[in-house]
Computed example of a mutant assay.
Amino acid sequence: MKRVFTSIAKYIVFPMLLIVVNACDLLSPQPVDKQTDNLVLNEPGDVPQVEIGLYAAFRTIIPATVIAGDFTADMLLHNGTFSQYRELGNKQITSTNASVSTLWGAIYNTIYIANFILEKLPNVSGVSTTQRNKVMGAAHFLRGYAYFTALYTFGRVPLVLTTNIQTNLTIPRTSTDDILQQVLDDYTAALSELPKSPTNSSYAGEYAVRAAFARLHLFLGNWSQAEQYATQVIESGKYELEKDFANIVNKDQTGESILEVSYTLTDDPGTDGNIGLNNLFVGRREIIPSNEAVIALASSESGDRFQTIRFNAANLKGTDNGWSVAKYGT
């Protein structure tokens, strides 16, 4: 019997292995929530493309912040059918909220690309010192800004400082002090690397960092430091307030723009339900200014803040107050 069993076992081992392997494939599918390393940074020609990729990731943070921030501050009113905006408006936000997922994803996508640059760029030969510093500085600054946004939106978040997937899988939420220290460290590094005068305000420069320092210290209640950094920006002579507030609404990169997230007609995310501000505010009118926001704008000293909203009596119906956000175009 023993010999018979051995013979039978010899012939069934291979089929059993096939079953085990196939079962492993079924039970361990390829993950869909891991960032794949499809970025390339091996030679000087790759640097501008990676820099553009960093800014492209960063700019998604801004409209997502507008939606989440202005809704929860009662500046916006849900006027449509999308449940994600209704949840933001009534402060009953679920874990499946698409707007929240968009902001979270934008933050960590920016952080990932910044980490990639900071890991790879120092080892790429043939890159000029000026270009290397500019891109490294942007990576530090935008990573710091992303963590600043994350902290004051979500609270304690994972502090991810590498692109290593295995390391990132087990990072817990980090203390507020550690996140703040990382923001300060990134801003400090960026301050010594970024140029005083970037190509235009679509790119970060030294004074964008000083302005970010001022804002950070305002959040921390460090009034003297906030004043110090703000004064440095004001006294630089590089910026001046627009005399006509309408220019802030209708023109790009005005004289008072320190850092401005830019789009073109071909890549404006107008049809994106999560970040297409023009589509949401004007096209669908899914979101409208709240009555409180309208009253606050009407109470401005000169009344010029009304340039940011528009009224159309034809829209008056139901709970619709007839006002639309006009600040974000195509």
Score class of each variant (00 low, 15 high):
Gly276Met: 07
Asp320Pro: 14
Ser257Asn: 05
Glu256Ala: 06
Asp268Gly: 15
Gly255Ser: 06
Ala298Arg: 13
Thr271Ser: 13
Gln307Asn: 15
Asn278Leu: 14
Ile248Thr: 15
Ser302Leu: 10
Leu297Arg: 08
Asn321Gln: 08
Arg285Asn: 04
Arg310Pro: 10
Glu256Val: 03
Leu265Val: 05
Ser302His: 02
Val249Trp: 10
Thr271Ile: 02
Gln307His: 12
Asn250Lys: 09
Gly273Cys: 03
Lys317Asp: 04
Lys317Ala: 10
Glu286Trp: 00
Ser262Cys: 08
Ala298Ile: 05
Asp272Asn: 13
Ser300Asp: 09
Leu316Lys: 04
Val325Lys: 06
Ala314Met: 11
Tyr263Glu: 07
Ile309Phe: 09
Asn274Met: 03
Val261Gly: 14
Asn278Ile: 07
Ile258Glu: 07
Gln253His: 09
Glu301Val: 12
Asn274Leu: 06
Val282His: 15
Asp272Gly: 04
Trp323Gln: 11
Asp304Phe: 01
Gly255Met: 11
Thr264Asn: 13
Asn250Arg: 10
Asn291Asp: 08
Glu301Gly: 13
Ile295Asn: 10
Gly318Trp: 01
Asp268Cys: 14
Arg305Ile: 08
Phe306Cys: 13
Glu301Ile: 11
Asn274Phe: 01
Thr271Ala: 15
Val261Met: 14
Gln307Gly: 13
Pro289Trp: 01
Val249Leu: 06
Gln307Glu: 15
Thr264His: 12
Trp323Glu: 06
Thr266Pro: 10
Val294Ile: 00
Leu297Thr: 03
Thr266Phe: 03
Asn250Phe: 15
Lys251Ile: 04
Ile288Met: 08
Glu256Arg: 02
Val282Phe: 14
Asn315His: 14
Glu260Pro: 04
Asp320Trp: 13
Gly273Val: 01
Thr271Pro: 01
Glu256Pro: 02
Asn291Phe: 06
Phe306Trp: 11
Val325Leu: 13
Asn279Phe: 10
Gly322Pro: 13
Thr266Ser: 10
Ala326Thr: 09
Gln253Glu: 07
Gly270Ser: 10
Asp267Ile: 08
Gly303Arg: 13
Pro289Leu: 06
Ala298Gly: 09
Thr308Met: 12
Asn278Glu: 13
Asn278Trp: 08
Asp272Ala: 14
Asn312Trp: 02
Asp267Trp: 07
Glu286Ser: 03
Leu277Cys: 06
Arg310Asn: 11
Ile288Arg: 04
Ser324Ile: 01
Thr266Ile: 07
